[in-house]
């Protein structure tokens, strides 16, 4: 069993490390003044300049087959926003697929740095991993059914991948602990919960009743994942006893 508490040590990042040196730092700002006037709004202006000329991240690919085109078109009542639906399905697919890899890393963390008293059994983490994998495969089938290409990286998938790149980086770093990495999982599961809610509504709007049923099963899984991760974190941080439930 590993400890879930950080160590106290010689962290050198704060000004408290050396009051003498940091006093000098502040003195320097009094003698050597800014070379131009203004404030951080200058950065906003440049952002505006570039936003005006910028292209989008990219686009959603058209369905690869004529059959797909027909199907998409069939369901493509204006209110159903089929392109947005494909974009968001692609987003979830990418997120779930990366989620599988994050839970794999979490399990190796568990094996090498150990779990903690009141924390999860290995099997419980494995089960979450399996469910993320099922979600990925389910989305793959859903996109195919609509005539879309599940291997395409859609703009929303790409955007979410950029957002979650830090989650992956933090769980694969050999210096992070299992308990710390549960926080990375928490971030994933929080996003997962909201995004699946949204996806069910989009499926409903597109008239995809089978998908609504499948996606509701995923929502139940995600609720369960979130509850478990929150509970384990509470135990790891000493906010709750070693009891199950939340």
């Amino acid at each position: 069993m590993a400890t879930t508490q950080p160590d106290m040590g010689i962290n050198r990042t704060g000004i408290g490390t050396s009051p003498r040196l940091s006093g000098d730092m502040i003195d320097a700002t009094k003698e050597f003044r800014p070379s131009v006037s203004g404030d951080e709004r200058q950065i906003a202006y440049v952002r505006g300049d570039y936003a005006r000329e910028a292209d989008k991240l990219g686009s959603v690919p058209p369905p690869p087959t004529a059959k797909g085109m027909a199907k998409t078109a069939l369901q493509g009542l204006k209110s159903a926003r089929p392109v947005q639906f494909i974009d968001k399905l692609g987003e979830r697919l990418g997120f779930e697929r990366s989620g599988v890899r994050v839970y794999e890393a979490l399990i190796s963390k568990f094996d090498h740095t150990g779990g903690f008293e009141g924390g999860p059994e290995r099997m419980e983490v494995e089960q979450i991993l399996r469910e993320e994998f099922e979600h990925f495969r389910m989305l793959e089938a859903a996109i195919k059914k609509l005539g879309g290409d599940p291997t395409a990286l859609t703009p929303s998938a790409n955007f979410h991948a950029t957002m979650t790149s830090g989650v992956i980086a933090s769980v694969v770093d050999p210096r992070t602990s299992f308990a710390q990495c549960l926080e990375a999982a928490l971030l994933l599961e929080l996003a997962d919960n909201d995004c699946w809610d949204a996806l069910v509504q989009l499926a409903d709007r597109a008239g995809q009743n089978d998908m609504v049923a499948d996606f509701e099963k995923a929502i139940r899984d995600e609720r369960d994942h979130l509850l478990k991760i929150r509970t384990w974190l509470a135990v790891a941080q000493g906010r709750a006893g070693a009891t199950n439930g939340g």
Binding site: I26, P34, S35, I43
Partner: peptide, 21 residues
Amino acid sequence: DFVSAGYIWAPGTELTRQAPN
């Protein structure tokens, strides 16, 4: 010049000296 207009470093960032503009 854009990035540092009026910039004065302070311990814990310039937000410890002033509210954001």
